[in-house]
């Protein structure tokens, strides 16, 4: 098997409570668009366009979802690393506690 230096992929888990909702999908798309590489996300046997918010939203990826971020192109490695870091960093959002309203005394 030959290794294609222009293709790179990495698995990452969604860890923010609200999952891949609109704001986080918008951040993902925005980051992906900074790279020339073609960016795909694999989830549940389907492939999604990492540069399209509409496509990302059709994943309905909840907390705990394992995504494979895959890129092809000369900056594929940088793209995958940056996007994986974004997911791991919970999209740099304040992670809203679910049901906080109910549990408040």
């Amino acid at each position: 098997m030959t290794h294609d230096p222009s293709s790179f992929s990495r698995q990452v888990e969604i860890t923010n409570a609200l999952g891949l909702h609109l704001r986080t999908a918008a951040k993902f798309e925005e980051s992906a668009r900074r790279f020339r590489a073609d960016v795909r996300v694999l989830f549940n046997g389907c492939e999604y366009n990492g540069k399209s918010i509409m496509s990302l939203l059709t994943m309905a990826a909840e907390k705990g979802a394992i995504l494979t971020i895959e890129a092809k192109g000369d900056d594929a490695r940088d793209a995958v690393e940056a996007l994986a870091e974004l997911v791991i960093a919970k999209f740099h959002e304040i992670d809203e506690e679910l049901g906080a309203e109910e549990s408040a005394p």
Binding site: A17, L18, G19, L20, H21, L22, L57, T58, M59, A60, A61, E62, K63, L98, G99, A100, E101, E102
Partner: peptide
């Protein structure tokens, strides 16, 4: 507030 899954499925 406590049903993020349904929200994601509606967006989907």
């Amino acid at each position: 507030p406590n049903q993020p899954g349904d929200h994601l499925r509606a967006l989907e």
